[in-house]
Amino acid sequence: MSHTAHIPSHRKPRRSSSKLALRAGVAGGVLSTIAVAGAAGPAQAEPVTDTIEMPTLNGDLSTNLSSAVAASAEATQQIALDTELQALEDASAAKAAKEAKQAKQEAERKAEAERKAAEKARAEARERANRTSERTTLSASASATVSDSGRDSDEGGSYDSAPATGSAAAIVAFARAQVGDAYVMGGTGPNSWDCSGLVQAAYRQAGIDLPRVSGAQSSMGTSVSLDNLQPGDILYWGSRSNSYHVAIYVGGGQFVGAQNPGTGVVERSLDYDAPSGAVRLL
């Protein structure tokens, strides 16, 4: 190989000045852009440090607000009280109306009951009057057939023929008017009787007050024979002053008495249930 032969150089080829200038301009532009971006970046990321101040309430505004709240609460409470009071008034009015209606119905019921009772009493009085009239007629007919001094052979007793007069008539009339009433132990009228209750009430028509029980009633007055009875005499069963039953002799051999719960007040012949004795108070 020749010493003059060309040996390639290992150095980089030289660049032209124009290319170098172009490259330097480009690099400078890039660096400027980066510098601008870097300068702008921190400014945008800077945190906000400003604070918002809330308005403060001065003394007058605070007082007015408190007054308004208190007034609103008071108004609400008053409305609640008014509502409760109205409810109570409505309930009281409803209760009063209900009670008034019930009282009216009760008064009407009582008035109707009293009206029916009065009608029943009038009907019973008419019926008793009719029975009394019929019995008086029958008694008068029977008395006419009885001897004044002798014992009637059919009746087996000596009976008066004269009608009752004066106090005896009042006693007899009252006793006969109760015929048909119920017998109730301890009854003293006006529609139910026991034996001594009826005798006591009958004698009260003549202004005579008798004891309440039969034993005491039979101990009153004067003892008389059953052959010499007069209307108004008290008949008794058992021993005198210890009798267990009493009735009123009404004349014509008949007596009226509150016998028992099965018969009630009846008028019967002495032979129906012969008494033990009799007493006279008139």
Rank of each mutant, 00 (worst) to 15 (best):
S2T: 09
A5K: 06
H6Y: 14
R15Y: 03
S16M: 01
S17W: 05
S18W: 09
S18K: 13
L22R: 07
L22P: 07
A24I: 10
V26Q: 03
V26M: 03
G28Q: 07
L31G: 13
L31D: 14
T33C: 09
A35S: 05
V36L: 15
A39L: 13
V48I: 15
T49A: 13
T51Y: 09
E53A: 14
M54I: 11
P55V: 15
P55K: 15
L57G: 15
L61R: 15
S62V: 13
N64D: 03
S66Q: 08
V69R: 15
V69L: 15
A73V: 12
A73H: 06
A73Q: 09
Q78P: 01
I79E: 06
A80I: 01
L85T: 14
Q86W: 05
A87L: 08
E89M: 02
D90H: 14
A93S: 07
A94K: 10
A94M: 11
A96H: 01
K101Y: 05
Q102Y: 06
Q105C: 03
R109A: 10
A111P: 04
E112V: 13
K120A: 05
A121G: 06
A125D: 03
R128K: 00
T132D: 15
E134S: 05
R135L: 11
T137E: 13
S141Y: 06
A142H: 06
V146M: 12
D148S: 10
D152T: 06
S153G: 02
S153C: 03
E155D: 10
G156E: 06
G157A: 15
Y159D: 01
S161N: 13
S167Q: 09
A169D: 15
A170W: 12
A173S: 10
F174Q: 08
A177W: 05
A177Q: 11
Q178Y: 03
A182L: 01
A182H: 01
Y183K: 07
Y183C: 04
M185K: 13
G186L: 11
G186E: 09
P190A: 06
N191K: 00
D194M: 02
D194L: 01
G197I: 07
L198E: 05
V199S: 05
A202P: 01
Y203P: 01
Y203T: 03
G207Y: 11
D209E: 09
R212T: 06
Q217A: 02
S218Y: 04
S219C: 01
M220F: 08
M220C: 12
S223G: 12
V224M: 04
L226H: 03
N228A: 14
N228M: 12
Q230G: 07
Q230W: 05
I234N: 02
L235G: 02
W237T: 13
S241E: 10
S241A: 14
N242Y: 14
N242P: 05
Y244L: 08
V250D: 02
G251R: 02
G252Q: 08
F255M: 05
F255L: 04
F255S: 03
G257F: 13
G257L: 14
N260E: 06
P261L: 02
G262R: 10
V266R: 04
A274C: 08
A274R: 08
P275V: 14
P275I: 13
G277K: 05
A278S: 02
V279A: 02
